[in-house]
Lab assay of single mutants.
Amino acid sequence: MFYPNSPQTSPQLTQIPYGQQYAMMQRQIQQPYHPFATTEPQARLYPYHYQGPIQQEQGGFITQQSTAASPQYVQMRVTPVDQSIMSGYPNQTANGSSSSSFNYNIHPQQQQQQQQQQQQLRHHAMPVGSVPLQDDRYRKQLIVNYLAPDVTSTDLHELFSRFGELDGARIIYDKQTNMSKGYGFVYFCHAEDAKEAVERMSGYEFHGKWLKVGYSTNPLNIVPSNSSPYVHAGSRGAAG
């Protein structure tokens, strides 16, 4: 039997160049792979992502010199942007860049009308829970959420009447099932009393439920100042 490094198959040491006398086997001759043993700084910083320098080929596509990437890492192929796409944008300079302001050559009167329309939209648009300043009635009506099913309009009136005089209180019921929808409205005579009720009743436990109280901004629920107070009856038909 002959071994790869046996004296019968191995040459004389004098015939082997210096430095390879003890590297006779194939696994010894093959050098191990060192990912950080390279002179390129990109490979030292990113050993798993770097795959060699990027070269520009004919046709405008950018390719990489090395083989496919590892399945664990996804390499994105980048193509140059066609400058003709950006030619339609206004205020574009000769080098292809555009300024931040756009001039669509709008007539001054049209621009003024658009600004007025935007101001009107901001004036009428009102986020949930906010209180408008032009109508004091919005500051007097509250919406009470997360009410228990057994709470009546009379219970709601008695709960909030300790903060001040009320114009009314009612629970909203479903017309088909005649069941409470879980929320109601309270109408105060003074805005200061309503503000105190919002601050003190939010998070209050009532009939096993934690109440959420806020201003009601729905104009359909506003009680006119010259109208008669609501009837605080315990029956659902009268309260709904």
Rank of each mutant, 00 (worst) to 15 (best):
G96Y: 08
R137K: 05
P32C: 09
E165Y: 15
A69C: 07
S153C: 11
Y73H: 05
Q56F: 14
S225G: 07
Y33R: 04
Q116K: 03
S227A: 09
K181F: 01
L220D: 00
Q42V: 13
V198R: 03
S216W: 00
Q114C: 14
Q65M: 14
M25R: 02
A194L: 01
Q116N: 07
T63R: 10
R139F: 12
G59V: 13
T14A: 05
H107Y: 12
P108K: 02
Y173I: 10
C189P: 01
S70A: 08
Y3V: 07
Q21R: 07
A125S: 12
Q134R: 10
N178G: 13
E57N: 09
Q28E: 07
G182V: 03
I172T: 00
H190E: 03
G52W: 14
G96F: 15
Q113G: 12
Y146R: 01
Y173W: 10
F102G: 08
R139G: 11
V213M: 03
G182H: 04
P41W: 07
C189M: 11
Y187V: 00
Q55T: 10
S98T: 04
E192S: 07
D174L: 01
Y204N: 02
N91Q: 08
S99R: 13
K175H: 12
N105L: 15
Q42L: 13
F36W: 09
Q117N: 10
A194T: 03
M25Y: 05
Y46Q: 05
N103H: 05
V151C: 04
T79K: 06
E192R: 03
Y187N: 00
Q141C: 00
N145V: 00
T38G: 13
Q176N: 03
N221P: 13
K212E: 00
T217E: 01
D135Q: 04
P149T: 10
M201T: 02
F206A: 00
P80W: 15
D150P: 06
L142M: 07
S228P: 10
M201D: 00
Y146S: 00
T79V: 13
F61R: 03
C189S: 06
Y104N: 02
F36R: 07
Q55G: 09
L220T: 11
P7N: 13
G203T: 00
V144W: 05
E196P: 09
G59L: 13
H157N: 12
L220A: 07
V144P: 02
K175I: 10
A43R: 04
D150G: 09
L166T: 04
F163W: 05
V151Q: 03
Q115F: 14
L166W: 03
A148C: 04
T38A: 08
Y73F: 10
V81I: 08
A191L: 05
T14Y: 06
N178W: 09
Q56W: 15
H207R: 09
P11D: 09
Q56C: 05
Q51R: 06
Q72Y: 13
D82R: 08
A238T: 11
Y46R: 06
P149D: 02
T177N: 04
S66D: 08
Q55I: 14
Q31I: 09
E57C: 14
Q58W: 15
P32I: 08
N91C: 14
F36G: 07
Y230C: 05
A239E: 04
A239L: 03
D82V: 12
A197E: 02
H157S: 05
L211Y: 01
G214D: 02
Q65K: 05
A148S: 08
L142C: 08
Y138E: 02
I222G: 02
M126I: 09
M25L: 04
P4I: 15
R122W: 15
T177C: 03
H232I: 11
S84G: 13
V198A: 04
P47K: 02
P71W: 11
A233Q: 09
T154K: 06
R170N: 01
E40Y: 09
R162A: 11
I222Q: 04
G164Y: 01
A43Y: 15
I222D: 02
N105S: 04
R77C: 15
F61K: 04
H207M: 05
V128S: 08
S225N: 12
E199T: 07
G88L: 13
T217H: 04
F163K: 00
V131L: 14
A94Q: 10
P229I: 10
E40N: 11
Y204C: 03
N226V: 08
R139E: 04
K212R: 11
S70E: 04
F188D: 00
T14I: 14
F160Q: 06
T217W: 02
E205P: 08
I29K: 02
V78L: 10
V151K: 01
A69E: 06
A197K: 00
Q112F: 13
Q111D: 14
D136R: 02
I106C: 11
Q75Y: 15
A197M: 03
P47S: 08
A169P: 03
D174R: 01
L142F: 02
Q20V: 10
Q28F: 12
S161C: 02
H124G: 06
V81N: 01
R137C: 02
H124I: 08
H107G: 10
V213T: 02
P127T: 06
S101E: 06
Q111W: 15
F206R: 00
P11G: 06
V131R: 06
D174I: 01
H34E: 06
D167F: 01
Y138H: 04
I54V: 06
Y146C: 00
M126W: 11
P127I: 14
A37V: 15
A37C: 10
S66N: 08
V231W: 06
P127R: 12
S6C: 11
F206K: 00
S84R: 09
S99Y: 14
P32H: 04
T79L: 14
K175W: 12
D82G: 12
P90N: 11
K195T: 10
R200P: 02
S97W: 14
R122C: 13
D155A: 09
D193Y: 04
Y73C: 09
P47Q: 14
S130C: 05
P47N: 10
G88R: 07
G88Q: 05
N218S: 02
Q15R: 08
R200A: 04
P4C: 07
E196S: 06
V213I: 01
E205G: 09
Q21D: 02
E192N: 03
G19L: 10
P35I: 14
D150F: 12
F185H: 00
S216H: 00
S87T: 11
T38K: 04
S202E: 02
V131I: 11
T79S: 05
Q112L: 13
F188R: 01
Y73Q: 02
Q65H: 12
Q15F: 15
V213S: 00
V81E: 07
D167V: 01
G168Y: 02
V186K: 00
R77Q: 14
E199A: 12
V81K: 05
A94H: 12
N145R: 02
M24P: 03
I106Y: 10
A125M: 13
F36S: 03
N5C: 13
R162Q: 13
S10Y: 14
A125Q: 04
Q65R: 09
A239H: 02
A238H: 13
I106N: 08
P47M: 14
A169Y: 01
C189G: 07
F206N: 01
P149I: 04
T9C: 14
S84H: 07
A43Q: 08
A169D: 02
M126F: 14
E165C: 13
I106D: 03
Q55M: 13
K209I: 00
A148L: 01
I54T: 05
H123S: 07
Y104C: 06
P71I: 14
S225C: 10
W210K: 03
A238F: 08
Q30F: 14
Q26A: 05
P71Q: 14
E158D: 12
Q111R: 10
Y104A: 14
Q141N: 00
P229Q: 12
P17M: 15
H157P: 11
Q119P: 07
Y33D: 11
S235M: 01
Q30W: 02
T39E: 05
G52R: 09
H207F: 05
V213G: 00
P4W: 15
P35Y: 10
F163L: 04
I62L: 13
D82S: 08
E40S: 07
H49P: 11
P41E: 02
A43V: 14
L211I: 12
Y22W: 15
V186L: 07
T154H: 11
Y3D: 06
G129A: 11
C189T: 07
Q119S: 08
K140W: 00
M179D: 06
M179V: 10
Q56T: 14
L133P: 07
R236S: 05
I54Q: 05
Q64W: 15
Q72G: 11
P90K: 12
L121I: 03
V128P: 09
Q55L: 14
A43F: 14
A43I: 15
Q118R: 10
V74D: 03
